[in-house]
Structure formats: structure tokens, C-alpha cells
């Protein structure tokens, strides 16, 4: 029998009163990968995370961390994982160092071992000079760094991050991403929740798109995008009557490089192999059919499209993308 996966979730469900927060969710996280749970607020990703870090028990189903059940062997699991909480889970009356000292005692570290490790961690996250200030005066970015240091204190095999860059400025976000990437390089398995598409896209090896408590799609960002079937060309017509759209669809379907056509608001979403031949041909066909073109947009598949394709809606709370 092979070694257990980093995380194995099987048919997990969590019901609050009558609301299904998580429905029959199954997934596997491999060793050494960054796995993202992507979804809007209230999708069930936080509930899933809380079950994995043993602070919430599932209604039905199981989850194991390195082969240990999160309910039956909760204490063992807690010794194997690190948890990077959301930044508001910081005691504003304690200094950064005091947070770490408290956690060191809760992980039962010996005094000298704790002090040495805390020193290393403060250096790692670049928080040394603020370590003895109370957290009340910390910026969002500093709180995040402290959170990460807290998560790393037990020297975990698997690190869980809850919305690691929520509300941070661009510079701090990039900073956190760097940290996460470095941890992965050192072989750590990382699970994070996010509702930022660009974060999932650029940071995660694989993501699970969660909506209304269910996994809608799972895979690497690249594969998920490829599964949409080619690049997208969006036409917007100024006279988008159903007849006109029908007529245009029929005409376009004959073109060799068109792989699929779907209606969208006031126009069509056309999937093509590449833009070079497709763009001129589509414009020509549109004119020939007699439709008035109001706009045309070409883009390579984005994670947003994947999200829309699988959930039927867009993640609207996305910040401006950092790069194309």
C-alpha cells in the first residue's frame, strides 16, 4: 500500500440547522503542492478548511491528514499542521513576540527551543524590528506576516492559510505570495482558501472551485482553462435580436477554426483555436450576415471564464489584476 496522501477528503458534508454548508465533497491533496479552495464568500471553503484543521466536525464523511482522521485523531492532526488564521484573529494587546511565545507553550515547546525558533521565524517574515510592539499598531501586512510566523511555529508538515491576502495592498500581497512559494520550495504542502482569481491562478498548483457547498471543478489552473475549449472571442451586437443571433451562429458554425459558440448578453461567445485567422473571418461573416458589430473582444481563457462556466456567475469581488 502506498503512503497516504497529504489530505484525503471523502464525501464530506456539514449541515448547519437546515443549511448545507458543504455537500458531499471529495478531494485529494498531494504532497508538496499548493492547493487552493476558490469560491465566493459563503461557498463552503472556510467550512471545509475548519473541518481540516479540526476546529469543526463534519456532519458526515471523513477527512484524513497524512492518514490521520481529523475527528478520531484530532490531537495527532493538530501536531502535524500549522494554521494561518485571518488577520483579525490577532490579540491587539499582545506583541508579535508574545503571540509566538503563547503558541510555543501551546505546542509544548521547550523554552530555549521556542526562543530560538521564534527568532528564526521573526527574521524569516521580516518582523524583527516590530516584534516587541503591541499588535494594535500593526499594519495589515505586518499582521499577515505575524500570522504566517504563527502558522509556521510548530514546524508543520501541512500549512493551512485562510484568505491569506484578504484586504492587503498590492505590495503586501506579492510579499505573501513570495513567502508561500518559498515554503513550497522547501517541500511544504499548502492548502489555502481564496476568493481572488489571480491569487488562485498564479499561486496554486491545483484548485477546487467551490460554490454553494459543492466542488464544481478541480484541476490545475492551466488544465481548467484549457478545458474551456480554446480562446474566447466575444461579439457584442448593436441589434442583438434572437433572429439575428441565430442567423449569425449558423453562419459562423461553418468556419473551420470555430470550436464552439454560446450566446452571451447582447452577443456571442465564440471559442476558437487562435485569433489570427478567426478574427478577420468572424468580422467578415458578421458583416455578410448583416449584423451591426458594436464591439469585439479577444482573450485567452481566464480563470474567471472557468468560474463562470462552472458556477454560472462571476466572482465580482476581485481586485485589479496584478499583471496580465
Amino acid at each position: 500500500m502506498s503512503a497516504p496522501a497529504a489530505i484525503e477528503v471523502t464525501n464530506l458534508s456539514k449541515t448547519y440547522d437546515t443549511v448545507d454548508a458543504v455537500k458531499n465533497l471529495s478531494l485529494t491533496v498531494q504532497h508538496g503542492e499548493i492547493f487552493g479552495l476558490l469560491g465566493p464568500n459563503g461557498a463552503g471553503k472556510s467550512t471545509t478548511l475548519r473541518i481540516l484543521i479540526t476546529t469543526l466536525s463534519p456532519t458526515t464523511g471523513t477527512a484524513t491528514i497524512l492518514g490521520h482522521d481529523v475527528v478520531k485523531e484530532a490531537d495527532t492532526v493538530r501536531r502535524l499542521i500549522g494554521y494561518v488564521a485571518q488577520e483579525r484573529a490577532i490579540d491587539r494587546f499582545l506583541t508579535g513576540r508574545e503571540h509566538l511565545l503563547l503558541l510555543a507553550d501551546l505546542y509544548h515547546l521547550k523554552k530555549d527551543e521556542a526562543l530560538a525558533r521564534i527568532e528564526t521565524l521573526l527574521k524569516l517574515v521580516n518582523l524583527e524590528e516590530h516584534a516587541d510592539r503591541v499588535a494594535k499598531g500593526y499594519s495589515g501586512g505586518m499582521k499577515r506576516k505575524l500570522d504566517i510566523a504563527c502558522g509556521l511555529l510548530p514546524n508543520p508538515k501541512i500549512l493551512f492559510l485562510d484568505e491569506p491576502t484578504l484586504g492587503l495592498d498590492v505590495q503586501s500581497r506579492l510579499n505573501i505570495w513570495d513567502h508561500v512559494r518559498k515554503l513550497k520550495e522547501q517541500g511544504m504542502t499548502i492548502v489555502m482558501t481564496t476568493n481572488y482569481l489571480d491569487e488562485a491562478d498564479q499561486l496554486c498548483d491545483r484548485i477546487a472551485i467551490i460554490d454553494r457547498g459543492e466542488i464544481r471543478a478541480i484541476g490545475s489552473p492551466k488544465d481548467l482553462k484549457a478545458s474551456l475549449g480554446g480562446d474566447g472571442i466575444w461579439l457584442t451586437l448593436s441589434d442583438a435580436t434572437p433572429e439575428a443571433l441565430d442567423q449569425l451562429t449558423t453562419a459562423l458554425q461553418g468556419l473551420p477554426f470555430v470550436r464552439g459558440i454560446r450566446p452571451r448578453e447582447n452577443g456571442l461567445d465564440i471559442r476558437v483555436d487562435g485569433p489570427e485567422k478567426a478574427l478577420p473571418a468572424i468580422m467578415e461573416t458578421t458583416t455578410k450576415v448583416g449584423c451591426l458589430l458594436d464591439g469585439i473582444e479577444y482573450h485567452r481563457p481566464r480563470l474567471d471564464d472557468v468560474f463562470v462556466a462552472h458556477t454560472g456567475r462571476s466572482l465580482t469581488n476581485e481586485p485589479a489584476p496584478l499583471e496580465a
Binding site: R78, R79, A89, Y107
Partner: peptide
């Protein structure tokens, strides 16, 4: 309410 308890409960105490 602010999640600190959750942080504590995720440790092996």
C-alpha cells in the same frame, strides 16, 4: 468572534 479561539483550538491543547 474574532477567530482567536479558533487559532487556539487548532493547536494540540
Amino acid at each position: 468572534e474574532n477567530g482567536f479561539l479558533e487559532r487556539l483550538m487548532a493547536t494540540p491543547i
